[in-house]
Design a protein around this nucleic acid. Structure first.
Length: 414
DNA sequence: TCTGGGGTCCTAGGACCC
DNA sequence: TCTGGGGTCCTAGGACCC
């Protein structure tokens, strides 16, 4: 027996070419031109291309040279994370004027459950128009909005018309819309699953939804049932406001190095830097973790490994994270130059900011707090460990749409 | 100078305990 | 010397999302 959930009205809002649009607004000379927003240094990829650039085939994920090959007049803009997080936070504020049920999915996407707002604002379409107008008036940028009975379908709908789209999928239209839709359009089915399903003769959502459930569960386990439901357009997942979902599960940083490194000295320098970035963010969130992971990608790009270690106590100070990362490094043999290094802290616990009792530890905690507050005010790595002062690149400058705006992920520390 | 960086969730298998 | 089963914690790796 199953209980039918009440009919909901869910909206998905997707900012169009978000980073590129913000840059074009900030600098009128970029408007109407093909631009690509990238991270910091040479070994990076295009994060967002403007619609003018997309016409030439410039896509997210392309290397800069590839983008320029597609479009010789492509303007490369180094991204500015602060601009995007500020704009994003303001836009989320707009959304919250229409419903408290706003689930921020990434810096440029959110779901709204407007079921109980219809009485006040008239209709979901009207809310969509109001939000579009507000964003356009304040920031000069556009978004695509999908309206449907659940998150899965709302996201599908927002994807159907870009830029500046508004697509509604009514409950009675669901099966018609899904019948010939490729399974790859569903959020949760990526290229691997698409291939697996194709081998089973399943290409459209209609086919997936009609597939024998036992056949799917034999192949995909517990997920088989979920896939069948997705094919039918069923998704009972609630729109969960961030306030109720602010538990961080891991904190990590990784970076592709400017040049491949081989010497232990160079490796340690980067590990210290990454450990400091991870530690600072963990302390800012008020968490400590007892599992440390080290990730290494070699110069050939394809070979890599990850190794983790679980300690007996929770840590969040940079030097302790560094020590744990080096311990892992010492258990492996590095036989090739290294292209990318990553450090992650997981198995987290909320951590009281209480000062330790012992004078030495107490002094150290106070010093770390003082360093953190200077860096918060004056920028990352203003004060840091002596051995980091000589490194050329400090901190990651690569920005990504998956970054949550500061303040979106609220962490309340008692 | 070919291919970034932030996450989440799931699975399979091993160690260890009762 | 051999048999078992449940539970928890851990590691490694893959798929997916932006």
């Amino acid at each position: 027996m199953s209980i039918q959930p009440e009919q909901r009205v869910v909206m998905h809002i997707d900012m169009n070419a978000f980073f590129a649009s913000v840059e074009q607004q900030a600098n009128p000379e970029l408007r109407g031109k093909p631009i690509a927003v990238v991270g910091g240094h040479g070994r990076t990829v295009i994060t967002t291309a403007s619609y003018e650039a997309r016409k030439f085939g410039v896509k997210t994920g392309m290397a800069i040279w590839e983008g320029k090959r597609q479009c010789k007049d492509l303007i490369i803009v180094v991204g500015d994370n602060k601009k995007y997080t500020y704009t994003s936070s303001r836009i989320v504020e707009f959304m919250r004027e229409y419903t408290p049920l706003v689930e921020v999915f990434s810096i440029d996407e959110a779901w709204l459950d407007v079921t109980h707002s219809l009485g006040i604002f008239g209709s979901a379409e009207r809310i969509a128009y109001l939000i579009k107008a507000q964003i356009k008036a304040s920031f000069g940028i556009t978004c695509s909005i999908g309206i449907a009975p659940n998150k899965l379908l709302a996201k599908l709908a927002s994807d159907m018309k870009k830029p500046d789209g508004l697509t509604v999928i009514k409950p009675e239209e669901v099966s018609r819309v899904l019948e010939h839709m490729s399974v790859k359009e569903l959020c949760g089915i990526g290229s691997k699953m698409d291939r697996h399903l194709a081998l089973m003769g399943i290409r459209t959502c209609g086919e997936l939804g009609r597939c024998d459930e036992a056949r799917l569960t034999r192949k995909f386990g517990i997920l088989g049932k979920v896939y069948k439901q997705m094919g039918q357009g069923i998704d009972n997942g609630p729109v969960t406001p961030v306030e109720e979902d602010d538990e961080v599960k891991s904190v990590g940083h990784s970076m592709t190095l400017r040049r491949d490194v081989s010497t232990r000295e160079d490796i340690l320098k980067y590990l210290l830097q990454l450990s400091e970035m991870v530690g600072r963010r963990a302390r800012r969130y008020g968490v400590a973790g007892k599992t440390i992971s080290l990730y290494v990608r070699f110069a050939d790009y394809f070979s890599s490994f990850g190794k983790q270690d679980t300690l007996s106590s929770y840590i969040n100070q940079s030097d302790e994270i560094f020590k744990a990362a080096v311990n892992i490094l010492d258990t492996v043999e590095i036989t090739q130059p290294i292209r990318l290094l990553g450090v992650k802290l997981s198995n987290l616990q909320y951590h009281s900011q209480q000062l330790p009792l012992f004078p030495d530890e107490r002094r150290k905690t106070l010093m770390v707090q003082a360093m953190d507050s200077v860096n918060d005010k004056l920028g990352d790595f203003t004060v840091t460990f002596g051995s980091l002062l000589a490194t050329e690149e400090k901190g990651s400058h690569v920005i990504s749409p998956a970054w949550r705006p500061d303040g979106i992920r609220n962490v309340n520390v008692q």
